[in-house]
Amino acid sequence: MWTSVLVAVLVLLALAVVFGGLLGFAAERFKVEGNPLADQIDALLPQTQCGQCSYPGCRPYAEAIARGGCINKCPPGGESTIKALANLLGVEPEPLDAEHGVEQVKRVAVIREDECIGCTKCIQACPVDAILGAAKHMHTVIEGECTGCDLCVEPCPVDCIDMVTVEPDILTWTWAPPTPGLIATDRQGASA
C-alpha cells in the first residue's frame, strides 16, 4: 500500500523534474529578443514619427502600447489605425483622444525656397531625413519621403515651410463609393 503511493509520488516527481528541465532549456535556447508584440503594433502605426502621441516616435509609442498604454493617441493613423490596433490587441476601439490632435487629410511640407536662409534647423528636426540642404544653402523637401509630421515647421526661424494638402492626381485617383441616392418612393415624389 505505502510502496505504491511512494512509487506514484516518485514517478510524478521524476516527470516534473524532466519537464521542468525541458521547459527551462527551451526558455533559454529559444529566447525571443525584443518584444514581438511591440513589433506587431509598430507595423500598424503610420510611421509619421510626428510625436503627437507624446512619445518620441512610433516605435516608443508601440512599446508603450505593448506595456498597456492607450491605443487612441495617434492622430495621423486616425480611426483605421485604432481599429487595427483594437483588432490586434483584442480590446474595444476607442474614439481618438482629441488632446493629441485631430485626424487630418494627408499633407506634405513644402519649403518656400527663395525665403530659405539655410539654417539647417529643419534638417535637424526631420525624423526621416526628408529634407536636403547644407548650411547657408537652400533646403528642399523630398516630397516622396515626407511623412507630413509638422516637426520642421516650428523650428524654422523665417517661417518659410508650408504644410500643403496632397491632392489626388490621375495616378492616385480611385473610385469613390456609390452615393446613397433617394429611395424609390422619394424619387417618385421628387419627379412628380
Partner: peptide, 28 residues
C-alpha cells in the same frame, strides 16, 4: 462601383503601408 471602390481603397492602403515601411526604415 462598390467593388471598384474596395479595390481602390485596398490599393491605396497597400501604397500607404509601403510608404510607412519606408518611413520606418529611414527613421531607424
Amino acid at each position: 462601383q462598390y467593388y471598384r471602390f474596395a479595390k481602390g481603397e485596398i490599393r491605396m492602403q497597400r501604397a500607404e503601408q509601403r510608404k510607412a515601411d519606408r518611413a520606418r526604415e529611414r527613421f531607424e
